[in-house]
Each structure stands twice: as C-alpha cells, then as structure tokens.
C-alpha cells in the first residue's frame, strides 16, 4: 500500500511542471541519458531480429543433424561438429598452459621464498611481468594476424587442418584464460594457503589441491568466456582449416566451422537459398555463444558465493 502511494507520488512529481530552470535541466538530462541507454540495446535486438526473422524458416532438426551436400543442400552438422572439435582441442591445449602459467605467477614466483637468492626473486618478478605483458598485448592483437600466424607456422607443418585451426584458436584463448585464472587464484584467501602449508604440504600440493579447487568456479568462467569468444572467430580459421563437407576427427583433415561457413555463404550469397542458409547458420552460432555465456554468467555468480563463503 505504501509502495503504491509512493509510486503515485513519484509519478505526480514527474508530471508536474518543473519549479526551476535547474530542475528542468536535470529532468532533461535524465530523459536524454535514459534514451541513450535504450539506444545501445538496439543493435542487439536488431541483429537477433534480422537473423531470426530470415533464418528460422530453414531451421529444423535435419538442418542441424545432417551434413552438407554441396553448399546449397543438406544441413550444417559438419560445421557445428567442426566448431566443437576446434574449440575442444584449442581448449585442451590452452587450458593446461594457462593454468600452469597462472599457478607459476601467483603461487610460486610471487610468494616469497625467503631462502631463494635475491637474483632468483628478481628473475621471477621479471618473468611475471613478461608473461602478463605479452598476454595483455596478445589480447589486443587483431584476429586476422592470428590467422596469418597460423598460416605461416601451423599450416606449414600440418597443412590446412583441424589441428592447425585449433592451435591458432588456442593462441587466441591465452589472454582470457590466463588473466581470469590469475584473478581467481589471487582471490583465494591467503589463510587457506597458510593452513595447507602449516600441515607440511608443499607449494604444489597447496596450489593443486586447495587454491585451484577454491578458485575453480572462477577459472571455469574464464574458460567459458574464452570459448564464447573464439567459437565465433572467423579470421583465425580463414587460412588454417580448409573446408570439409563432413566432420572427421582426424587431426590432419580439413574441417568446417560455423563462422567459416557463414563467411562462405555471405561471399557467394547470390541465390536466395544460400542467403537463408547463412542466416540459419548464424542462428545456430548465436545460440551456442548465448548458451556458453549464460553458463559463464551462472558460474561467475557461483564464484562470488564461493569467495564469500571462503572469505576468511
């Protein structure tokens, strides 16, 4: 009751004339900013509307569950499975590397080992700086450069293949996974490390069984964010994967992917059917990214819980 009364009062105060020029300006600013806030949500809705309105027509189980037959017929199973394969292998490469590097920088190099010689401590500090600096720069490198790098280094060795594309994506995942893992590890209270060390555990055991475990939700969030980012990347795959109408698991086979498929369709979208297929493929890709991001947000909320509950 009190609420409805106060809402009425609030509304009434809005629809009465402003008492002064200052009040008028203040209200004008409010409205202006509110409109801007609404405007920035428009691209999202516009994109989703455009894609769904055009693409829903082709979307059916067969489209998802069957392979392409030529570009214009069949489903896009090869692209969906290909994207999953690429991201799965990229994750398997990037996760251990990044988590290992993060444990080194936060658990080993930074915490003082009093007995370590001063030059070792200095060296450790420099390694941390270099690791973080290169990861941060890597985050800003345009994705086409990754593609070119993959072409020169990985394609030269493996040919246009699943493994070449996955390794290129793995490089792109490094900054996100490394930095979020570091943040999550640093958020683990020092007292947990001390409790473990005081029991006679080694730094490794402490990092692996206590700190990593406490930070797990945060690390998973970082991994999902990285996956959500690279699963939609086209440029790194442009020169590295080739294309395939099936989705084999051979590392050296060429492989299709969702973004690359959309790219090809857009490139040759002169016929109506190709144009529609591009939109349908886009729905699938957006859907996957959306699901991954929702899980990431959910996981990051859990992190908050864990950190608060363990916040000793």
């Amino acid at each position: 009751m009190g609420t409805s009364k106060s809402i009425t009062r609030e509304l009434r105060s809005w629809f009465r004339l402003p008492k002064s020029r200052r009040e008028f300006l203040d209200r004008l600013t409010f409205v202006f900013l509110a409109v801007i806030a609404v405007i920035i949500t428009l691209p999202f809705f516009a994109i989703v509307f455009e894609v769904v309105a055009n693409g829903w027509i082709l979307l059916n189980p067969a489209f998802i569950l069957t392979n392409m037959v030529g570009f214009a017929e069949g489903g896009i199973r090869n692209a969906i499975v290909g994207s999953i394969e690429l991201v799965a292998i990229a994750s398997m490469v990037a996760i251990p590397l990044c988590v290992g590097a993060a444990i080194y920088t936060t658990e080993y190099a930074q915490r003082g080992r009093r007995r370590a010689r001063r030059w070792v401590q200095e060296l450790n500090k420099w390694v941390i700086r270099i690791v973080e600096f290169t990861a941060d720069v890597l985050a800003g490198v345009p994705s086409i450069i990754f593609g070119a790098f993959g072409l020169i280094f990985f394609v030269a060795v493996f040919g246009r293949s699943l493994i070449a594309g996955a390794l290129t994506l793995a490089l792109m995942m490094i900054p996100t996974i490394l930095r979020t893992t570091q943040e999550s590890l640093r958020a683990v209270p020092l007292s947990l490390r001390e409790a473990s060390l005081a029991l006679g555990a080694t730094t490794w055991s402490t990092s692996w069984r206590v700190v990593l475990r406490a930070a797990l939700a945060g690390i998973i969030t970082g991994i999902l964010l990285a996956i959500g980012r690279v699963i939609g990347e086209t440029a790194p795959l442009l020169f590295t994967t080739g294309f395939n109408f099936d989705a084999p698991w051979g590392f050296l086979d060429a492989i299709a992917s969702l973004p690359f498929t959309i790219y090809l369709y857009a490139l040759q979208g002169h016929t109506e059917i190709i144009r529609l297929r591009a939109y349908s493929t886009a729905i699938v890709l957006i859907g996957i990214v959306f699901v991954v991001d929702v899980i990431a947000v959910w996981a990051s909320k859990k992190v908050g819980l864990v950190v608060r509950a363990g916040g000793v």
Partner: peptide
C-alpha cells in the same frame, strides 16, 4: 607442529 589460526579457515 599443528597450527590453529585466529580466524577459522577450513578448506572449501
């Protein structure tokens, strides 16, 4: 040497 800290700090 067992150590009991000021604030309870069980592992999660």
């Amino acid at each position: 040497i067992g150590f009991v800290f000021q604030k309870p700090n069980p592992f999660p």
